[in-house]
Design a binder for these strands. Structure first.
Length: 365
DNA sequence: GTCTCGTTTCCTGTTT
DNA sequence: TAAACAGGAAACGAGA
C-alpha cells in the first residue's frame, strides 16, 4: 500500500508540476457550524479552506490513501457541507484518521460513524480511488521509472521519462547522435509493461525533417545495438518521400525484437483514451476539459502533453499533437468525432462514440 | 498469405 | 509568423 501511496503522490505532484489548470474545482464553502468537539485534532475553521496558493482544497488531486488527518477532515467537512448534513450527528472523535485508515473502512463502518452520510462518503471515496486502467497505467509509468519527486519538479514538464533520460542521453552522446542541432528533446521513458526493457527513444520536434530520412526508421537507441549502426544515422538529410517510411527489414527487425514484446495487444483506441481522461476530472488536471459536456464538446488544454501520454501508451515516444490530431481527424469520417468549426483544439464526440455521456458514466460505475 | 482496421508518419496547403 | 487544421499518401502491426 505504501507503494501505491507513493505512486499516487508522485502522480499528483507530477501533474501539479506539469500542469497549471485553467480551472479549479469548486471551492468548498466555509463551514460555519460543525459543532464543538474537543477531540478534534485540528481547528475546523481551517479544514475545508482551499490552500492559499492554489485555491483548491488540499485533498484535491491527491489519492485518498495519502491524505493526512487534516485532509481527511477537510474532505469530510466538504461533504458535510455539500450534502447539508447535520454535523452534530457525527462523532468527530472518530474522524481522527489518515487517508489510509479511511480507505480501509467498509460502507457499513462508515455508516456507523457518519450515519446517512456514510454511504455518500463511501461512494465518493471509491469514485476517486477506482482509477481507470488508462490512468492506472499513467501511474505505472511513473512507478516503473522510479521517478523522484524532486526530479519531477525539476524536469521539463513534458519530459516524461526523465529518470531514464540522463542515462540514455549519455548513451546517445556516445553514439554521436546528439551532435546535430534541432533533433528535439529527449524522452527515454520505459514502457509500463516492458519489465525493464528499453524502449526509450529520441523524440523529435513535430516538424523536424530528419525524423525519417532513412528507410530504416529505427529508434536511435535500438540502432546502436545493431551491427549496421555506425553513428552516421540521419547523415542524409535529403528531402524525404511522402508517406511513412518503410520500417526495417525483417533481418533488422530481429535486432529490435529483443527490445519489444512479440505480441502486444492493440489496446484501446485513441478516442477511448481521450474519453477516459475526460470522464475522470479528478485525475485530469489541465490536460483536457469539457466545453459542453452534454454535447460532448471538449478541448485540449495541453495538447502536446496528451500526445506524449498517448505516445507513452503506445510505446512511441515521438508522438506529437500533430500526429495525434491526424488520427483524430480520421474519426470524422467514421463519425466517432464531429468537426467543431472555427475553434482550435476543440473536438466533439460523434454519434458513433460512447461512454462519455454522464448517464453512461454513471451506469458504468 | 491476404485483407482489414486503426493508427502513424510525413507532406503540402490553408486558416486562425 | 507560428500554430493548428485539413486531408492525401503510404506504411505499419495486429488480428481475422
Amino acid at each position: 500500500m505504501a507503494g501505491s501511496c507513493e505512486i499516487s503522490s508522485l502522480f499528483s505532484n507530477y501533474i501539479s508540476a506539469m500542469y497549471q489548470p485553467e480551472e479549479v474545482p469548486p471551492d468548498p464553502d466555509v463551514l460555519t457550524h460543525l459543532g464543538d468537539d474537543d477531540n478534534l485534532p485540528l481547528p475546523l475553521s481551517n479544514l475545508h479552506m482551499p490552500t492559499e496558493t492554489t485555491g483548491k482544497p488540499t485533498w484535491y488531486g491527491e489519492m485518498p490513501h495519502c491524505w493526512s488527518k487534516s485532509q481527511v477532515l477537510e474532505w469530510i467537512s466538504y461533504h458535510v457541507e455539500k450534502n447539508k448534513y447535520d454535523a452534530s450527528a457525527i462523532d468527530f472523535s472518530c474522524c481522527n484518521m489518515d487517508g489510509y485508515t479511511l480507505c480501509q473502512y467498509t460502507r457499513d463502518q462508515l455508516g456507523l460513524i457518519f450515519g446517512p452520510l456514510g454511504d455518500e462518503l463511501y461512494d465518493r471515496l471509491h469514485e476517486i480511488t477506482s482509477v481507470p486502467d488508462e490512468l492506472a497505467w499513467i501511474m505505472s509509468v511513473l512507478r516503473n521509472e522510479e521517478v523522484s519527486q524532486e526530479s519531477l519538479l525539476d524536469s521539463n514538464p513534458l519530459d516524461l521519462g526523465n529518470s531514464c533520460s540522463q542515462e540514455y542521453l549519455e548513451e546517445m552522446k556516445l553514439a554521436n547522435l546528439f551532435s546535430q542541432p534541432d533533433l528535439g528533446y529527449f524522452s527515454g521513458a520505459m514502457s509500463p509493461d516492458s519489465s525493464g526493457s528499453v524502449t526509450g527513444t529520441m523524440s523529435q520536434s513535430p516538424h523536424s525533417q530528419d525524423s525519417g530520412g532513412s528507410d530504416l526508421d529505427l529508434d536511435p537507441i535500438d540502432m546502436k545495438h545493431c551491427p549496421f549502426s555506425d553513428g552516421d544515422y540521419k547523415k542524409d538529410l535529403k528531402k524525404r518521400k511522402r508517406g511513412r517510411p518503410r520500417k526495417a527489414s525483417k533481418e533488422n527487425r530481429d535486432c529490435l525484437e529483443t527490445k519489444k514484446s512479440k505480441h502486444s495487444p492493440r489496446g484501446i483506441h485513441l478516442w477511448e483514451f481521450i474519453r477516459d481522461i475526460l470522464i475522470h476530472p479528478e485525475m485530469n488536471e489541465g490536460l483536457l476539459k469539457w466545453e459542453d459536456r452534454r454535447e460532448g464538446i471538449f478541448k485540449f488544454l495541453r495538447s502536446e502533453a496528451v500526445a506524449q501520454l498517448w505516445g507513452q501508451k503506445k510505446k512511441n515516444s515521438s508522438m506529437t499533437y500533430e500526429k495525434l490530431s491526424r488520427a483524430m481527424r480520421y474519426y470524422y469520417k467514421r463519425e466517432i468525432l464531429e468537426r467543431v468549426d472555427g475553434r482550435r483544439l476543440v473536438y466533439k464526440f460523434g454519434k458513433n462514440s460512447s461512454g462519455w455521456k454522464e448517464e453512461e458514466v454513471q451506469e458504468r460505475s
